[in-house]
Design a protein around this nucleic acid. Structure first.
Length: 427
RNA sequence: GGAGGGGUGGCAGAGUGGUCGAAUGCGCCGCAUUCGAAAUGCGGUAUGCCGAAAGGCAUCGUGAGUUCGAAUCUCACCCCCUCCGCCA
């Protein structure tokens, strides 16, 4: 959530900021009005309570009927006001929760992905002298992906990863860990179910995201949409010493997403599914260091993708396309030759103090306290597997394994069960 | 799932209707002592909100209730711990 004091003092900046994110700036005025009313009502109730406290103290000495009747009267009035204050407070936080983080001043402004700024394109796109197949037909043919049985068992937007498909996932995870641990990231396997107040604090139950989450009614718990959702709250309510910052974690977890509102988008295959595994980076750092930390996380992402020798580009998201909680966001998109376009495989966000305020995660520097800056970034999800299938496909219908993954997968080429017998017949 | 115990300040832990935002100890900060340190002594040390300040209000797991007045009494809920059962 945003800093209330900051909204009061910089209403114009906040209005401009949220408008860039396609949120009605009038909400800021509505918030401020509710805030003023709340403040006035609280002041009134505080005064009545003060009177009541004075009387109570006098009565502690001895019983006096006239004082008791006066206090009874006060009690009734306070009761009425308390209800009004509660209503105003709810209204006030209601508006506050509809305000996203304000983007950095130099973030490109625009309504959608068309305004995103491509920072660089890296790597050579593969050239094929045969008709290029998409990852799904390759995966199905080699027995690596099964969406038909997944539909039978679980419904749409699920998939089975099989054989080298499954091995590739573990390989990516191992590559991520082996690359990141030397940088001091603490490996962590976090819970995938979290309390509502934690998700709320992380800004992940905001207006536009609530429908995206799975909720376990009986237990009052949400399934995480990313390891971010349970790694951030790890330090909820804590105050970290400045000297021990930044605190960096690399977490592995399954991510659950309802994909509400994406009907008809990427329905084929397993690019967009309800459940996938992901290795995620999370960093808690000093406010003055967060932009630097953000670039650092991005550099690690590039290192990981480059290790796979896949062509990619780095995009700075525009205000209309970036996340609710983000001050600045980069995406790394990998080239998918069959589609002839880049697809998002990584995202890297600096949420500044927007999330830390919600989960009350602070730092202390000499007696001074302040809110930490929280950053999250993808190391590897399942999507790069699909990119590998497309980019490393061969004329013979096999898929070569990227050099960096060969030691984890245990082979240099994925031949597939069917393909193997075909080859046998040919020879 | 069954039985029991418990949630109080950074930590430990007292407090069963009023002068309790809360004893005491530890920790932490400052000062004294010291060449310096340890030890010791003295003082200070929760958070949020409103306020320019003085100050005020709120907070003893959460919410509701009783009362002029609740950490303390009543009810509901949440969480933690121990034992039994089940289980990878």
């Amino acid at each position: 959530m945003l800093d209330i004091q900051y909204i009061r003092e910089h209403a114009d900046l906040v209005k401009a900021g949220v408008e860039k994110k396609k949120v009605d700036p009038k909400l800021v005025d509505k918030f401020l009005r509710a805030d003023e009313m709340w403040k006035a009502k609280v002041a009134a109730i505080d005064e009545l309570r003060r009177e009541q406290n004075v009387i109570s103290k006098e009565l502690a000495g001895g019983q006096k009927d006239d004082l008791v009747s006066k206090a009874t009267l006060l009690k009734t009035r306070i009761g009425q006001l308390e209800k009004e204050v509660a209503d105003l407070a709810a209204k006030r936080t209601g508006f506050l929760n509809r305000l996203p983080n304000v983007p950095a001043p130099d973030v490109p402004v625009g309504p959608d992905e068309s305004a995103n700024r491509v920072l660089r394109e890296v790597g050579e796109r593969p050239v094929f002298d045969f008709p290029v197949k998409d990852y799904l037909s390759i995966g199905e043919r080699l027995g690596l992906i099964d969406v038909k049985r997944a539909a039978k068992v679980s419904g749409s937007r699920f998939g089975y990863l099989l054989r080298e498909g499954a091995l590739l996932e573990f390989a990516l995870e191992r590559l991520a860990l082996d690359t990141l641990l030397p940088h001091g990231f603490v490996p962590v396997i976090p819970p995938v179910m979290v309390r509502p107040e934690m998700l709320e604090g992380m800004g992940r139950l905001a207006a536009d995201q609530k429908e995206e989450r799975y909720f376990l009614e009986k237990d009052g718990l949400y399934l995480v949409g990313s390891a971010e959702h349970s790694m951030g709250p790890f330090h909820a309510g804590e105050t970290l010493d400045e000297n021990r910052l930044p605190k960096r974690y690399v977490g592995f977890s399954t991510s659950f997403r309802r994909e509400a509102g994406s009907y008809g988008k990427d329905t084929k295959g397993i690019l967009r599914v309800h459940q996938f595994d992901k290795v995620e980076l999370f960093s808690f750092c000093h406010p003055e260091k967060s932009e630097e930390e953000h670039r650092f996380l991005l550099s690690l992402q590039e290192e990981l993708v480059a290790a796979l020798e896949l062509p990619y580009r780095v995009v700075e998201m525009c205000t209309g396309d970036m996340g609710w909680t983000d001050f600045r966001q980069f995406d790394v998109d990998i080239w998918f030759p069959a589609e002839g376009c880049y697809r998002e495989t990584h995202s890297c966000s600096n949420t500044t103090d927007f999330q830390s305020r919600g989960i009350n995660a602070k730092f202390t520097a000499g007696g001074e306290k302040g809110y930490l800056h929280l950053l999250n970034a993808t190391a590897f999800s399942q999507r790069p597997i699909l990119a590998i299938l497309e980019n490393y496909q061969t004329k013979r219908g096999t898929v070569r394994v990227p050099k960096a993954l060969q030691k984890y997968v245990g082979k240099k080429e994925i031949v597939g069960e069917n393909q193997k017998s075909d080859l046998k017949n040919q020879s």
